[in-house]
Amino acid sequence: MSKHPGSQLRGKSRGGGQSLNWVFTLLGMLILLFILVPLFKMVFLSNKQALGQALLDPQTLSSIGLTIYAALIATAIGFVLGVPLAYLFARREFPGKGILEGLIDLPIVVPHSAAGIALLFVFGSNFLVGRGFKAVGIQFIDSLAGIVIAMLFVSVPILITSAKESFRKVDVRLEKVARTLGASPWQAFARVTFPLAWRSILAGSLMMWARGMSEFGAVIILAYHPTVAPILVYQRFETYGLAQAIPVAAIMIMISALVFIGVQTLLRRRDAGA
C-alpha cells in the first residue's frame, strides 16, 4: 500500500485524465476529418486547369461578383437595422423581449426554401409590401433585390446575436459613468459602447456576409436569375455533371475560408484585449 494515499489518488486522476484526452481527441478528429476532407479535397485536388478556366469564365466571375455584392448589401442593411435591435436586447427590458429574442433566431432553423416561400408571400408583387415596393420601382422576383432580401432573412440573426452578446459584455457602468461625465446617450454609445463592441460586431458582420453568400434555398425561390454562385454550382452540376461544378464550388469555399480566418483573427485579438 502506498505511504501517500494522496499521490495514489493523483496518479489515478492523471490516468483518468489521459484516457479522457485520448477518447475525446479521437472523437474530435473524426468530426474534423468529416468536415475538412471534402472541403480540402475540393480545393486542393480539383483540376487546376479547370479551376483556372473557371476564374477566367465571365459567367462564373459575374456570378461570384453578384454573390459577394448582394451579400454585402444584405450585410449593410442587417448592420443598420440589426445592430440597434441587438443593443436594445442587450440593454433594455420590455414585455415580450424573451419571445422576440427567440423568434429572431427562427430564420436559422426553418428550411430555407420555406423561408423563400414566406418572403415571396410578403414581397411578391401580388402582396401589399411587394406592391408598395413595386410602386417605387423595386421588385423582388428574379432581381438583385430578391437575392438581397433572401440573404438578409436567413443570415441577419447571426449578426444580431453576435452584436447582442458583444454589447452584453460591455459593462453597463461604463455607459453610466460616461453619462455622469457629460456624455449624451448617443455620445456614450459612440465613444464607449461601440468602440468596445465593434470587433465582435464586425466578426458577426463577416459571418453574416459569408452565410449570405452561401444561401441557396431562399434565393432560388425568389430569384433564380440573376444567378448567384450557389445556384450556378447547382446548375453546372445538373447540366454538365460534377467536373463542371467543382471549380465554382472550390472558389466559393476559398472565399468562405478567407472570411472565417478573418473572423477568427478578429475574435482572438478581442480576447487578447488588443
Partner: peptide, 20 residues
C-alpha cells in the same frame, strides 16, 4: 434631469475606467 446635466461626479468600486 439627465445624468449628463446634473454636474455630479461618480466613482465606482472597480473604477469603471474605459478600457479602450
Amino acid at each position: 434631469l439627465e445624468p449628463e446635466r446634473r454636474q455630479l461626479g461618480m466613482v465606482y468600486q472597480d473604477c469603471a475606467l474605459f478600457p479602450h
